[in-house]
Design a protein around this nucleic acid. Structure first.
Lengths: 164, 164
DNA sequence: ATGAAAATGAAATTCATTTTCATTTGGCCG
DNA sequence: CGGCCAAATGAAAATGAATTTCATTTTCAT
C-alpha cells in the first residue's frame, strides 16, 4: 500500500546515526553476536527512512546499497533492531508487518486513512501520561504502547462524494 | 492475574443478539447477500465470546455447534462482520489476526503482557476525546481507534526475578 | 415450484514469514 | 600472524495463515 506521509522531521544527523549504531552493537555484544558489514548497511538504511516499512521494502532499499545482501539477513537484522528497541512494529490495517525506527523520535502516534492508507503522525503527551497511569493502576510495568486512529482523510472524502 | 478482565458485562441478552442480527442482515441485504443458517450460527457464536479470537479459534467454537460448517465460511463471515462494524480487528503482538465483537460494548482499550499474553481491558473516556480532537485537527473523519499498552504484568515480574 | 444468483466447504493456491543448511566470515586466543 | 570455531550469510525450502477456486447445494424473488 502506498504510504503517503505528512512529516516535518529532518533526517537523523551523522551523530545520531553513530549513537544508534552504538546501541545496536552494544546489544549484539551482550547477546554474543557479531559485528558485520551487512548489519551496518541495514541499520544505516533503516535509520534514513521516515516510513513504515515492511521487511520487503527495507530489503529493496538495502539492495540499492549492496546488492549482495539477502532478504533473510534483512529480516533477521530487523528482528534484532526490534529486540534492542531501535525498531518497533506498527500495526497497519493491511496486516503486513511494518516497522518504524524509534531512534531519537518523540513518542508519537498514527492516524491512518482506511481508504488510501495515508498516515499522519501526531504527538500527544497525554497518551504517555495515560500509559503510566493505567500501568500503575493494574500493576503492569508498562514499556510501550500503540495508538492509532483510523478514519477517512479529507481527500478520500472528496473522492467518495464524487464517485457516489 | 492471568486473563484478569475488568469486564462487568453480562453475556448479551437474547434481545441484544437479535438486534445484532438485524444489523448484520440489514448489511447483507444492502450488498445483495443472503441470509443463511451458517451465518446465523457464526454470528451467534461470535457474540457469546468475550475474548480476542483468531479465525481458527472462532471456527473451533462454531464447529461445536454445527460440525458441518467449514473454516472458509467462518473466515468469510468474520470479514462480513467486520465490514458492518460488528467485529473489529485487534492487533496483538503475535501477529495473527484477532477479532473482538463490538456490539454493545463500551469503547475500551487493552493492556497486554508481552511475557505471557495476559490482557486486561481498561476504559478511558479521555481516549475517545482524543480521537475526536485529533481527527478534527487533521481533517480526518475518525471512525475508530486502537490503543494498546504493552508491558509486563505483576506475575511475570515475579517469575523473572526468581529465574534470574 | 423454478431458476438465477449466491453460499458453502474441501481443496488448492498464494504469499509473507520463518527455518534449514551448506558455505563463508569475524574475531578471539595462542 | 594463523588457526579455530561460533556465528553470519543467503539461497532455497518449509511453514502456516489468509485467500481463492470450483463443484455442489441453498436461498429467495418471481
Amino acid at each position: 500500500m502506498l504510504q503517503r506521509r505528512i512529516d516535518d522531521h529532518a533526517p537523523p544527523s551523522r551523530e545520531s546515526v553513530r549513537e544508534a549504531q552504538e546501541i545496536f552493537y552494544r546489544h549484539l555484544k551482550r547477546v554474543g553476536l557479531k559485528h558485520t558489514d551487512q548489519r551496518d548497511t541495514i541499520l544505516g538504511t533503516f535509520l534514513e527512512t521516515r516510513e513504515h516499512l515492511s521487511t520487503d521494502e527495507l530489503f529493496r532499499l538495502v539492495r540499492k546499497k549492496d546488492a549482495k545482501i539477502g532478504f533473510t539477513t534483512v529480516y533477521r537484522t530487523l528482528k534484532l533492531l526490534a529486540e534492542c528497541g531501535l525498531a518497533s512494529a506498527v500495526p497497519f490495517p493491511d496486516g503486513m508487518a511494518r516497522y518504524e525506527h524509534q531512534f531519537n523520535r518523540r513518542s508519537h502516534h498514527h492516524m491512518v486513512c482506511t481508504e488510501c492508507g495515508a498516515s499522519v503522525e501526531f504527538f500527544s503527551p497525554e497518551v504517555s501520561k495515560l500509559e503510566e497511569e493505567i500501568g500503575h493502576k493494574y500493576h503492569f510495568d508498562a514499556t510501550r504502547h500503540n495508538f492509532q486512529i483510523y478514519g477517512i482523510c479529507e481527500d478520500c472524502r472528496k473522492n467518495i462524494r464524487k464517485t457516489v
